[in-house]
Structures are given as structure tokens and as C-alpha cells.
Design a protein around this nucleic acid. Sequence first.
DNA 1: CTGAAAGCGCTAACAC
DNA 2: GTGTTAGCGCTTTCAG
Lengths: 332, 332
Amino acid sequence: MAKLTIKDVARHAGVQPSTVSRAINNHPDINADTKARILQSIRDLGYIPDRAAKNFRTRKMRSISLLLPMTGSDFYNRLINSIDETLEDYDYDAGIFPLLSERRLSRYQDPSALPYHTDGLVFASLNPSHLYESLFTIQGLPAVVLDIITPDFDNVTVNNELGGHLAGKHLQERPAQTFVINVEERFHTPFASGVFAERLKGFRAAQQEAGLDFPDSQVFTSEFTLDSARDAARKVLDLREGNINVFTTCDFFAYGLLEEVKLAGLTLGEEVRVVGFDDEKQAQSLGLTTLRQPVEEMGRMVTRLLMDRIQDPELPIRSVQFKPELQVRRTT
Amino acid sequence: MAKLTIKDVARHAGVQPSTVSRAINNHPDINADTKARILQSIRDLGYIPDRAAKNFRTRKMRSISLLLPMTGSDFYNRLINSIDETLEDYDYDAGIFPLLSERRLSRYQDPSALPYHTDGLVFASLNPSHLYESLFTIQGLPAVVLDIITPDFDNVTVNNELGGHLAGKHLQERPAQTFVINVEERFHTPFASGVFAERLKGFRAAQQEAGLDFPDSQVFTSEFTLDSARDAARKVLDLREGNINVFTTCDFFAYGLLEEVKLAGLTLGEEVRVVGFDDEKQAQSLGLTTLRQPVEEMGRMVTRLLMDRIQDPELPIRSVQFKPELQVRRTT
DNA sequence: CTGAAAGCGCTAACAC
DNA sequence: GTGTTAGCGCTTTCAG
């Protein structure tokens, strides 16, 4: 059986191809009966429109690409779901491109790579200006950046500095020896979004405003493995002289700390107070005080900005910032 | 500036469009000098081939879709990297489609959805026959299934039953009260790959062969959260009368168990012996005895089978099975 | 409201 | 080794 085309449908329904096209695409100028007859023919024959032909002809892919450093975290899962949901209103699909390996990174330097075969791009926690050897790669494709403020693209962020500040103020309610567990940020890599540095900056500012000393020696760093988080936690606990306050710049690091606190037989919320950042699903069940980012709203906003820009590329650049909210739970 | 086409390049290089096409596509019938001149023109002008037009014309997308239940686990990350790497030999790209939400699941019932706008499909831990209301959705698109043996598609599996058997035999070396922590498999869902049931089956067989009693009451179930894994672990430890052996049908469940064992002050490898399954990255640092799946080889094989089938859809269905290998570490 | 016809950018016969 | 030409399947003017 040869491939069914719009011509076959037209013949079957006794109309011209252009009329079939109008029926498929919900064009207003079509008689309801004709339309019904055509749709019936389509069902009878089992016709499926050729997406490649349509994309080619209309110069629209009806899809966008989401580029992100990794997948599987609570944050990115929620983000993906929110973007998906919003795209449904536009009848668009999303392709997901986690930059898992060096290979992908270099392969995606090529303007004809898969991710750019699309109507627009979302960069999550990724700075296009650092990601690409040349922005020529993305050929002026509409793009929105999440997590990073940039003058070149629409962007959506959460006020991380404010979040760090809120964490600082909250922990100050119970004065104690104070520590931070932060990610070790390697700058000048595509993955240096700067969000963690901002959180720390806000926290530092809060300490300073309160006239509290906060030396670098009380900041420890961790990688994104539970082992590493626990290492950092142990270093903190080793320096403990009495009650302590700890700000972890993401929830994940707090998980390691909570384990170590339990193991050391210390009381959470008393001897050790902890504030995380992100409000991941686990944070709730662990009773972790943390800063909530409105991920769903952010996903919606990112999608809207992108779809707006796809419609009108000449729009002025927009920058939207959300506020994090402190979720007080048992660890403080 | 209007969009540059192959015609503009042809004019600039003083040749015909077809010659430019030959230059771009490494056609053998072309003079080396002409080719060099054309490629120079392409660089001079900044021409980028129109992928949509090419796809349309050649009826090839030069990309495949990878459908999988989720992302972010060590297993799937390694799988993706291995597939990516193998695809490079074919100059193909991979799109990743984690079935994170119900919305995606229903959206992807539509044959014109994004994932099917591609030359072939890989189903990882997903059974197409259960996934779709009708296989009409994928329109006879070349497909390979990973993790599930099916008569309808090429498939690549690891012998999970053998793995369970090996785990059983290994634990029998030190006779003790024996438990299993398994996933709660909801059958008749798209996500019921059956791999865990097979692992348990092999384990059971090993017990039976050794004439050991192994009642259902010694099998506990867990979900894919650390909390749930720890719950299951506590149930096991509560029933402990002396030394115990535990088989967790995936490494993840073992992580929870290891935590609880430590908390209970028990000695791993002595009072509590544990065998996991998957050999995730963490298993190594935790010293977990486990069954290693050759993920990279599996990814390579899946890709090769798919590319073969894309080249020749009439190929007979092939089924390839790999053997898991026991990695003995400190927990036994 | 429907039909006729042109053409998107590219590739692949077939000439030469 | 290069040119000529037709056409992939669809949408979109423009007529009527």
C-alpha cells in the first residue's frame, strides 16, 4: 500500500486537495457538511497528514526544544510537566535535550543538530552565551532563558539573593554558630548558572546586616552526590561547639546533612537547625525548612514568553522575576 | 536578509543547485576542486541547509526517538549516552521522551505527535503493545524494545531470571534467614516491564533448587522513594532473628536498607548480607554486591538493531539477550 | 465556500 | 563530473 496523501482523501471525498487542507486545519471558510464528509473520508482511509511536508511548507515545526543540564531532579521534572501543560494550549510539543555528555555538547554546536530543528528554545539553568562557541549556532531562533538574567534573551528567574537573605534572617532568630553548604561552582563552564552564588550572597548580606561575622571558613562545598553531601555535613558537625545553624544552598545537600545529624544522635530543629533551598518533594516528607520556588508558574511564564516571541520576534526583551517563599518546617 | 537557499550558493560558486547538493552530501561523483569551492561559498555566505526541506524530500529524519518511563537514573543516563555515541557513527541524533505524566502518555497516542516524527523508535522498559491503545499510533515505524521480550519487535534484554538465580546461589553460600525487597508491580500499566518479577522468579528458583523454604511473607515491596525503601528495610529488620540475607531487586532499594542497617548498628556483610541489582554508580562506592548489566553494550546493540531495521524493514525480528554478572563487594 | 495552480528547498534520475 | 528537470505533500494565494 502506497502512502496516503491529501490527494487520496480529496478523491475519496469528491473535493479538491485545498479543501481537504482547510478541513484538517480548521480553516473558517468551509462548509460544515463538506468538512464532516472529509473528516469521515480521513477516518475511512486511515490517512495521517505528513508532518514533514507540513513543516516544510509552513516553515513551522509546532515544537520547541528544552535544553537543560540534566534530568530526573524534582525541579526539572516539575518544570517539564509545567511547560508541557502550557504548550498544550498552543498545540505544541516539547523535545527534551539534557546535556548529559561532552559529546552532546559538541554535537549541538552544529546549527543543523536536532534541537534547533524547532520553532524555539528554552534554556534551563544554561547560558546560551557560554554554551556556544558562537551564537550563530542558534541562528536567531526565538529563545528564553530560565534561571539566568541575560540582556540578550527573554529570561525568567527567581530572586535567589532574596532567598538567601530570607534563609539568613530566619536562622538568625535563634543565634548560633552558622555554616553554609554550597555547590562548588566551576565558572566559565556552560553549567555555571550562578544561582548558588546568588543564594550565598543573599545569605552573607543578611549576616552582615545583623552585624554577624561570617568567615569563609564556615562555608563548605559539595558535589551532587549523597556521599559528597555527607562529607560536607561531617565537616560542619566536626566544627560544632554548641547549637548550630546551617544553610544548604539546595535541598539535596540538606538530605546528606539530615542523615549525618541523625547518625550523630543530634536533635534537628534544636541542636542543629537547617534551611534548604528548592522545596523538593522530599523536603516536605523530611520536614525540611526551605525556600520554595514557584516552578510551575515559572514553567508557564517561560512558555508564554517563548510563544509570544515565536509569534513576534521583534518584541522587546522581557525579564521576569519570581520571589521565593520560606516554608517553615521541623528543621528550624 | 532573505533566507539563503542552495540556489544562492550555486550562483555564488558558479554551479548548479544539484552540484551543491552533491557537495553537501558527500556524493562520490564530484570533482574535489568544485567541492572545495562550493564549501567555501557556503562558509562565505553562512548558508545552513534547510533541514525541513531535506527531511521532506528524502523522507528521512536522520533522528530516532527514545521513549522511556523516566530519566535521571544512572541506568538511563548510561543508556542515553551509549545510544548517542553509537548514533554518531550513523550521523543520527536522538530525541528523548520520558513519559513523565499522564498528559504525555495520552498526547503520544496521536500518530502525528513529535516522537513519531522520526525514523525509528527505541522503547526502554516500555511495552509498545501495552503503551498504545492501538499500534496504529506508530504506523509501522521501525522499533526496538529494551528490557522486554516481545514477538512483535526486535528486542534486547538482560537475563533477569539468571540474575535473580545468581543472587540466590550467592546468598546461599552463607545460610541464613532470607528476605527480598521488590518493587510493587502494577501490571497492565505501560510501565510493567516485568523485569522485577523475573528477578524474583530466578531467586525463587534458586531457593527451590537448594530445597529451601521461601514463603511470600518474606517478600516486601517498596516504591521508588528512599522513604519507602527504608520502610521496607525496617520491616525486614524487625523480623530478623539472627543473621539475614537480603536480595533487593534493584540497587535503589538496597540504599535504603544500608542506611537502616547502619542505624541499627548491625554489621554489613555479616549480620546482614545484601545483594542488589543494576550495579549503579553508587553501588560501587557503597560496596554493594550486585548484578551488573552491560548497559553500554545494550545501548549499542539496541541502536544497531534499530539502524539495521531502518535500512531494511523486512528483516526478521531479532532478540538479543545479555547475561548479568555478579559483582561481589563488601555487603556479602 | 470551493477549485485551480503555484511553489516552499531540496534531491535524484537522467542526459550530456 | 555537471547540468537539466521533475516532483516530494502540503498550503496558500487568487479566481470564481
